[in-house]
Structures are given as C-alpha cells and as structure tokens.
Amino acid sequence: MTGILPQRAAATALLLVGLLACWQALFAFAGTNALTSPLDTIAYAAQLLGTASFYPHLIETAKAFCIALGFALALGFFIGFTLGLHRFSGEVGEPVLVALYSIPKITLYPIVLLAFGIGMPAKVAFGALHGVVPIAIFTLAAVRSLNPVYLKAARMMRLAPWQITSRVLLPAAIPEIFTGVRIGFSLTLIGTLLGEMFASQRGIGFLLIQGIGLHNIKLIMALTLMLVVIAVAASAILLSVDRRLRR
C-alpha cells in the first residue's frame, strides 16, 4: 500500500502543473483580450469571495442545486427500485430511460420554463431533470442484478416491503447505486447552472451570462475556475467514497 498514495499525489501534482502551464501558454498566445492569466484569475476569484454582494448568488445556486439533487435522488431511487423489482416493467422502461439519457434535454428548457415560470422552481426542475435519469438507470441495473436469494430470504422472514428495500436491497445494491449518484450529482449541477444561465436574476449561471453580455473576461474566467474547482473537488470526494464502497 505504501508508495501508491505518494505516487498518485505526484501524478496529480504533475497534472496540475501541466494544466497551469497550458493555461499560461494559451494566455501568452491569445493575450489579455481573450483570457486572463492563471495568477490574475485566482486573485480575482479570491477578491470575489471577499465581496459581500457575491454571496447571495453563490447561496442561490447552492440552494437550487441541493433541492434539485434531493428531487433527483428521490425520483431516481423510486423509478429505479420500482422498475428493478418488477422484471417486465424494467424491460419496458430501461430503453426509455437510456433514450432519455442520450437526447439533448436542453431543448426541453422552454417547456420547463413555461410550466414553472422564471426563477427557483424552473432551475430546480431543470437540475433534477438532468440528474434523475442516470440515478434511475444505475439503481435499476443494481437492483436487477442482485442475488435473488436475498429477496427470497427477506420474504421468508416476512419483512414489509419498505423493510426489504431499506434493510436488504439498499445495502446490497449501494456500490452500484452510488456510481449513479456520482454521475447524477454532476449532471444536476450542470442542469442547475444551465437553468440559471437562461432565465434567472440570481446565481452563478446568471453571473456567467451577464459576464458574456458585458464582455467581462475577468469575471467569466474567475467563475469558470471556481466552478471547475468545486466540481472536481466534489467529484474526487464522491469517487473516493465510490472506491471504498466497492472494496
């Protein structure tokens, strides 16, 4: 075990240095009209984090994302368990889910807006819409591939359906399900941000669109950097939990 962790850390450090070098080179090539240098961007991001007027936007996005993720998880689990436990429903539903996964859901945005109006509900709905499908697909696959003996034993012990789900199925399927949750997490974030980009008066996505309109490169770069750092950090944590669950 020793030696693997430092090696991985070294590889990650190498990657970071490489990315920063590419960024700096791009900056030298494209100039200040197109993008800002790594150092300036980090400085401006720090400055943004120091301004009080930035926090309402951050909190708005965080709130929308959390609610959306809650809906995506609840709905995804419900669909996944229902279709996973009933073989025929699963056979009918799975291709539909896969098709839903691969269509550009972004085109549905106008419909979501017409249904929910501009503001928080639309953002939440759009985030959840993106996140729910992978969670449902992975949950469905996980539940279906469970050892049927578990289910038979649970039924023999006369457990109630909710007990079967919470005590037997969920613990047994959790590693697979968690992979779906990880993907759903990222897609919900993307969906929420997209929602904010189109029709919203607050949030990180709104600031991004405003940045394009005002040609505020500093703002765009700093926000993009923040988003990437948050997304990669969250994904790294989820990935390590994922690996631990699979052991």
Binding site: R8, L15, L208, G211, T224, V228, A231, S235, A236
Partner: peptide, 21 residues
C-alpha cells in the same frame, strides 16, 4: 497516471461554463 484524475472528474466539470470563454 497523471491524466487519470482529470478523466475521472471530467464529466463533473460544467463544460458549458467554458462557452463564454
């Protein structure tokens, strides 16, 4: 080895955030 962490986290990055850029 160096790029693996990037690939692992890649789809968590909202690519549309780069569109303005």
């Amino acid at each position: 080895d160096a790029l693996d962490p990037l690939f692992g986290a890649y789809y968590a990055i909202p690519v549309y955030a780069f569109y303005p850029l």
